Computed example of a mutant assay.
Amino acid sequence: MSAVDQLVLFVASFVANWFSALSGGGAGLIQFPILIFLGLPFGVALATHKVATVFLGLGAALRHLKESHLERRFVLAIVGAGVPGVALGASVILYVPERPAILALGILTLGLGLYSMVKPKLGLDYAPRNRTGIGLAVGLAGLFSVGFLNGSITSGSGLFLTLWLVRHFGLDYKRAVAYTMVVGGVLWNGTGAAVLGVLGNVRWDWMPVLLIGALLGGYLGSHVAIVKGNLWVKRAFEVTTILIGAKLIVG
């Protein structure tokens, strides 16, 4: 890569991961198209992006773990239900027609933002629920489904996890984003990266620039989310989901 290409890649990675750490997902809105624009085929760009997002999670985790809001049993539930879905999604995505999948994801993602906007109180207060019985079973099934999206689709899948944690489990946005970044960003994305690394190809020579941008963007975006609080994160989530949904629909 030329020096200019490396600079473009770093800026795209930093900005994408800053927004993702702030809003709870969406790094693929900027980073994945840039990889394709710089010349990577779809499958190679997908695998390369997925590996880089693991370092988004690590950067965000460094900041969120200082707050100590994560509950160990809930982390284990998200991992146990989501990781099999991630592995399944990453195993099938390279064989799925690209455009229909992206269009469907765009409609769903746009719906997330609009739903959050028409629920002004959603995610502003911490009111945990559905931790036992049928509510927990439904929640775990939802986590498996979101994990499938995380493994198979590049743009905005973390946003689905954020909203599911808010809507079904009663988390506020700040806590939900912390779980999305730490559990989804590191463990879920790590699983997807491992599967895609085996089934596809990764441009490892592009990775150092991507990793630096992901670590810095993830840490600083998480810092802003923690400092600004729930209302600010909720607005960032809504703007990000609407932008991603519209972009995916338009193509």
Rank of each mutant, 00 (worst) to 15 (best):
G106T: 06
F55D: 02
I102S: 12
A81Q: 05
L103N: 05
G28W: 06
G28R: 02
V79N: 07
G24Y: 11
S68Y: 07
G28P: 04
A77R: 07
I107S: 10
K66D: 11
A52W: 07
G80K: 07
V44G: 03
P100I: 13
F42L: 12
G111V: 05
L105V: 14
A47G: 08
S91Y: 12
K66N: 12
F55L: 06
L70M: 12
G123M: 10
R99E: 12
G111T: 02
S116R: 02
A60S: 11
G85I: 06
L124T: 01
L65Y: 15
L35I: 11
V86A: 11
S23V: 02
L88T: 13
F32D: 04
I107C: 15
A47C: 01
L105R: 03
G106L: 10
L76Q: 09
V44D: 03
L103E: 04
A21E: 00
G85T: 11
G82M: 04
A45G: 00
L38W: 14
I107N: 11
L29F: 08
V79T: 10
G39W: 10
E71D: 10
K66H: 15
K119V: 01
F74H: 04
R73N: 09
P33R: 05
F32K: 00
G85Y: 07
E98D: 15
I30L: 05
R63G: 00
G89D: 12
L29M: 10
W18F: 15
G59M: 01
E67P: 00
L38C: 15
L29H: 06
V92M: 13
A101V: 14
H64V: 03
L105Y: 05
A77I: 08
V118N: 09
S91L: 12
S91V: 08
A16Y: 00
R73M: 11
